[in-house]
Amino acid sequence: MDATLDAKGLMCPMPIVQLAKKVKELKSGQVLELLVDDVGAKEDVPAWCSRTGHQLMGVEEEGKLLKFYIKIK
């Protein structure tokens, strides 16, 4: 893991807007952990990854909390 973005408490579109901003700070191949509890994020983050080309390596669910692991393209 190279960085963590804590987007807990934020709702659509803010997790995605902040994710896009954060990804710009990272280098290709680095892995970002995204923490989010917006229910919409479950579908939004995979959709965003598939559209932007960043690789979604995995998701973990802990109750309402979602942890996404994204490899920067």
Binding site: C12, P13, I16, V17, A20, T52
Partner: peptide, 11 residues
């Protein structure tokens, strides 16, 4: 604005 910001954040 919410749609646009999401779209712009998706490139």
């Amino acid at each position: 604005l919410i749609m646009a910001n999401t779209a712009a954040a998706s490139g």
